[in-house]
Design a protein around this nucleic acid. Structure first.
Lengths: 221, 221
DNA sequence: TCATGTGAAGCAGTTCACAGCG
DNA sequence: CGCTGTGAACTGCTTCACATGA
């Protein structure tokens, strides 16, 4: 059985803030760390203290999805972790294709976090014939031209875009047309989300530049 | 001469919003694309239209740093690009060390965006002796134990952290102690910024999980 | 008693609408 | 006239403070 995540409180997933969702991931990470140490119960204040978070924000974030805590006590670590994991849809397994097997695409194909139970990189494609026909870790690399077929045959619903900027828009369009529902885009172009295909743009250069902005000039040459 | 970026309007860099700074990077990217096409002048509305941005937000963002536009006309593409590049501190060159030469660290050492004029990866370190003494692209890999010496000798002021979660806090402390002023942290732990060392936490898994949250359950198994 | 869950307050970020200027 | 630059309105996010309930 796959209980709908929204069903519980009549909540519309689409109107939860991205900021809240990102913090849920962080809460889950933190809870897993406590679990590994054998901690059974934790208060919002303890969580905040140890992991550089805000106690009231933790409570507000969680309250949107139900009442998971016990007043006067705190939250059950394992129960809350399970609940957040379910909210994030991590108790399902999503098949992922990688478009562009350059430096970054290759690293992500081998990246352990992208190959646990919740996500499974099933294939990569690249336009360079020298890269196709091989395997990167467990991931077979196909021709860029076979993208639609690879998606159909693998049943992938998510994609990682790791191609140069000029190749990204066409790849994005093909992914959406082939039924991909979510794209993590590392190319340095802002691709728009549509109703059927959500895009998360993640240009790594932007974040290096953010750091550079706040750095004093004396730190460069 | 290195004119202080804040000097112009008596602006305190520290109180500019991260969101604004990230958008400056995107504006710069967009302007470079126009420049390559030979476009000389552009209005905020044209920029917004073509690159999925907001016209009033572009104007508000830029207005914090001065008056760069011409009323009734728009912005000079090359001039604005130069101005934003200067604001972001990209006309300086920052030396960067990578801690952890696993999948991701290795990919970033070869990543072209991290090795243009503004950023230069000068060295990597890894705790695995099998990885040290080699070169990844142009980047020499040293022993993790030599981190402080590598930083001192290379004059690096920025670092990329690409180690497992449990190794990250110690590495972070060492980086700060060795004089590193900015850290891009890919490890799945939230490291705090201090007054002397700014940290940008960038856990890739968080962003895959964001996409999973908004995906319907039917898209997994 | 103690920590959650929550309305209300406060703050930050975005959009609007138009005055100002080339 | 057209587009920038900007106060004012608005929206959304975070923090506060306390009523609620184990």
């Amino acid at each position: 059985m796959r209980a709908s995540r929204a069903a519980a409180g009549g909540l519309r997933l689409e109107l939860v803030s991205v900021l809240t969702v990102n913090r849920l991931s962080v809460y889950l990470r933190s809870l897993r760390a406590l679990e590994a140490r054998g901690v059974r119960s934790v208060s919002s204040h303890q969580l905040a203290e140890e992991f550089n978070l805000s106690a009231s924000q933790i409570r507000k974030d969680l309250a949107q999805f139900g009442e998971f805590g016990v007043r006067g006590v705190g939250y059950g670590v394992a129960e809350l972790a399970a609940k957040i994991s379910h909210l994030l849809g991590l108790d399902l397994s999503r098949r992922v294709v990688i478009v562009g097997m350059g430096n970054l695409g290759t690293a992500l194909a081998r990246y352990p976090s992208f190959n646990a139970e919740s996500f499974l990189v099933v294939a990569g494609v690249d336009s360079d014939p020298g890269k196709t026909g091989r395997k990167v870790g467990r991931v077979p690399v196909h021709s860029r031209r076979d993208l639609a077929r690879v998606i159909a045959e693998s049943g992938a619903t998510m994609a990682i875009l790791a191609v140069p900027a000029d190749a990204a828009p066409a790849a994005h369009a093909e992914l959406a047309a082939a039924g991909i529902r979510a794209v993590l885009n590392f190319a340095p172009v802002s691709l728009p989300s549509t109703r059927t295909c959500r895009v998360k743009n993640l240009d790594l250069r932007v974040h290096l530049e953010e750091l550079a902005f706040f750095l004093e000039d004396g730190d460069g040459s």
